[in-house]
Every structure is written in C-alpha cells, then in structure tokens.
Design a protein around this nucleic acid. Structure first.
Lengths: 250, 250
DNA sequence: CGAACTTTTGACAAGCATCAACACGTGTGG
DNA sequence: CCACACGTGTTGATGCTTGTCAAAAGTTCG
C-alpha cells in the first residue's frame, strides 16, 4: 500500500496533461510522509511556515481564510488527489488554512523535492501549471457565484459542483459520501449565514429538488442545474471524465 | 522597441522565481504579434478558441464572466506584465472574457511556443506555475472580500489592492493613472450595484479617506487600510517590491 | 445517558437592490 | 463654436433579501 499511496495525485495530474511512464514513476517515488487526519484537524494554518506540499489521498478537505473581524470564507473543497497548497505560490508561508472535512489521509511532500522533480521532468511542471490554472478557474466561478447569484442559485450551484466533482473523483464513492458539508460550512462557502442556508435548503426541498434527509439526495438533477446556472466547463475535466459529469441521471 | 516589447513579462516572471540570462533571452525571443487596444475592446471572449497567450504590455485590463441571467462579475484586474489567460488551464476555449480598461498594448504569443519554452527551460515552467499560484491567491482574497466583508470594506479593499499593485507595477505611472475603474466596474468587481458603490464612495469621501475628485486620491492610506482589512501578503510580492507596497506615505 | 454539535424556528432589523430621474462632463459633428 | 448625444456620476423613494439574536428540537458519539 505504501509504495502506491501517491496514485491519486498521479491520476489527477495526468488528467491535466498526458504523462509518460517515466514521469509517473518519478512522481510515485517522491519522498513523503503519511498523515492520518480526523475531521476538523488542520493540515496547514495561515501564516505557518510552508516547506511542504500536501496531497489529499482520501477523504475531503477544504481551505479557508478569516477576515480581521473573524468571519470565515471557505475558498475551496478538495477531493482525493488534490494538491492542498495551490494558493501559496512561492510564498514561504501558507496563505490559507486547510482543514479536513472528514477523516482521511494526506501525503506530505517536501516542496523542494517536488520542485526538483518538475525541473527534471518538464511535463510535470506543465501539469502543475495547468492544474493551478484549473484550480484558479474554479475559484473564478465561485467568485461569480458569490458576487452575482442569489442565495438559492449559489447553494444549488455549490451542490452541483460537489456532486459533479465527486462523481469524477479518482475514488468514486471511495472518497466518502457525496454530502460532506454542514450547513454552517455551506454558509461559509457561499457567503451566507447558516440560518439563511437552512431556510434556502428547505425551499429547495419543498420544490422537490432535494430529498428531506439530513444529508439530502439530489432528486431532480436537471432542474437543479438550471436553478444553479451550472455549466461544468469551468471544472476543466478531461474528455475521459466528462461523460460522467454531464449525464443527467440522478 | 519591438525586440524588447516583452520586457514587462520578463520582469513579472522574474519576481516569481529568479531567472538566469538564458531564460530571459529565451523569453524575449518568443514569437509574438503586437496588438493595440482601445478602452472596452476585447482580447478574448468566453468560449472562444484560445490558442494564444496574451501578455499585457501597457495599459490596464480586466477579466470577467457573465451569469446566465446577464449579471457580470469582474474576476481580476491586470497590470502591465500580466499574463491574461491564467484561468484557462489547458482548456482549448477561453473560460472568461478579457477586456481593456484603458488603451494599451498586448503581445499575443502562440500557446505552443510558450509550452515549448517551458519544456526547454524548466525554470520558466516553475515561474509560470508560481505565477498561477499568486494569481489564485489574489482570487482567493477577492472571494474572502466579496463573501465576508461589507460594502465599505470591500470597496476600500479593492482600492488598496489596486493602489498597491499600481505602485509595484513594472511601469510606475507608465502604465497609466492609478484610478482606472468606473463606478459600475467597481460594482461588478465587488459584487455590488453601481448605485450602492456611489453612496459608499461618498461615505469614504466624507470620512476624509478619499478626495472628492472624479477619480479620487487616497487621502489617508493608513485608515483606508484599516477600513479595508488590507494586508498585502496575499499579493505575494517579492522582497524587492515589498517596501514600495508597505510604506504608509500618501 | 449526557454533552456537544447541528438543524430548525421565530421575530425583527438592516444593508443593499431596484427603479427612475436628473446632473454633469466630454467629445463629436453640423 | 455651439448643440447634442452619450457615458458616467448623483439623488430619492421604496422594498426585498439576507443578517441578527435567541432559543428549542434533533442528532451523534463517547
């Protein structure tokens, strides 16, 4: 198990650009330290020294930042295979917090080792660059979502994104359940309050879009997508992943 | 003039990671086509085929996206030296619009040429990766700003960011004036309406933070930063640029 | 079986949006 | 050189969306 732990990262990066077996072997032999995380434990804190890169191997995570007044904004949700520190650039200090949403595992890789690898295998560097662009594209969609859509659409949009990414994830259902956010986290991800999220969610349920369970199922995917103004292009899936994401089956 | 047109990009990338003269020469000899742009002209439109990378050489630009309901969200402001397509990842189609905020020039570079260069000079690839991370970090701060700060702080924050980036820009004052947004654009960048931006701006003026001119001057930088909850770390300036950004002189 | 989360509900307040009109400045063409 | 049109900034009246505060009900887990 240990030798192949990094496979989710390889899978992820090879959706960003095609990698040869040399690159894959090199990635898999990267030095790393395994960390088990419980829900709510932190992988990194804003301002902390960041000499490593973390790769999420299983479970879910999020990154967030806090304003001077103490309000929290969730910046991204992470699935298995994701690099957790894509916001840091070359900064020596983490610019956001990253926290586990469920129990799971991360591989902690020395940043220098990854840079060395990128220098030796330029395609890996390109893949990392491309991956950073894809992540930025998701951030941009979140910005559009929060800046210009109302509560109902915002929440529906996030639900659509999470469901789509969950289905396309390297570990279909192996990563965990498809509903991993509390209403408060949903609120912090959409720029709303948890009270308003609760009421809006009830609205979506009574429209028949979501089930009434505690962790709702999507009952009407197509209408939910319409409400959400959701088009998965910004997720920049490769051709292989796309059909899974686009099919309208519930 | 032609041979050195790409200098602003070189300047930018070498703040991302130190480049040797071989890399710099390679970058400067990249093939490109010069384009003059007038205010409000588009460099790229969402969904359009994107086989090139554009570098902003002078003037200002922004990128934005539109919801299905027609609402516009500004995603980023660009200064000379910025790569304009950082959101695209490997996608063949542009995921956002980019539009000139003032008259200016861009260099249009075939994407393939840039990738080839990155393959040949791995440090360039690293610089591009790092640059993408820094851009994502700015997007993340915008998300925090729009998601979790009120109108007054949001607007103040954007003003602080623009002023700081303007001062650190490769062409100090050569790029243009330090106030390049209409109130409507400011609104689309902060997730507000132009009416509310107008009123909030008047509030900031009557507090003595901004001058009453049509394109206001910052009168009290320090208090503006406090109101804005502004800390420039997320801009990920290199050490060279930092002092300019941090000094509290008006 | 109790403690700590999480979800739900209600009453109320506030921030921001909406709509519509008007003022101002700037550039353009007659 | 004046007139006009267009983009931008300003103002007012009004109302809806969302936030705030507080408490209760439900859930999970040790």
């Amino acid at each position: 198990m240990l030798p192949n732990s990094l496979w989710p990262m390889v899978h992820k990066l090879s959706t960003r650009c095609p990698l040869g077996s040399a690159e894959i072997d090199a990635l898999l032999s990267l030095p790393f330290r395994l960390m088990n995380a419980r829900r709510n434990s932190y992988f990194a804190r804003e301002g902390e020294r960041a000499s490593h890169c973390s790769v999420l191997l299983s479970g879910y995570a999020m990154s967030h930042r806090i304003t001077g007044e103490g309000a929290r904004q969730v910046l991204s949700i992470h699935f298995p295979g994701d690099l957790l520190d894509f916001l840091n650039g070359k900064a020596d200090y983490a610019t956001s917090n990253s926290e586990a949403l469920s129990s799971g595992q991360v591989a902690v890789i020395p940043r220098a080792a990854l840079v060395d690898l990128a220098l030796e295998y330029p395609w890996i560097a390109i893949a990392l660059w491309t991956d950073a662009g894809a992540n930025a594209s998701i951030l941009a969609e979140w910005l559009l979502n929060i800046g210009r859509r109302d509560a109902r659409s915002r929440i529906a949009h996030l639900i659509c994104e999470i469901r789509t990414r969950h289905r396309a994830s390297s570990a279909p259902d192996g990563g965990g359940p498809s509903w991993m956010l509390t209403q408060e986290q949903l609120a912090d991800a959409t720029g709303l309050t948890s009270v308003h999220v609760n009421r809006t969610l009830q609205g979506l349920r009574s429209e028949g879009l979501l089930s009434r369970e505690r962790t709702p199922q999507v009952l009407d995917w197509q209408r939910l997508c319409e409400v959400a103004d959701f088009t998965p292009d910004y997720l920049q899936f490769s051709e292989l992943e796309k059909p899974i994401a686009l099919e309208a089956v519930h």
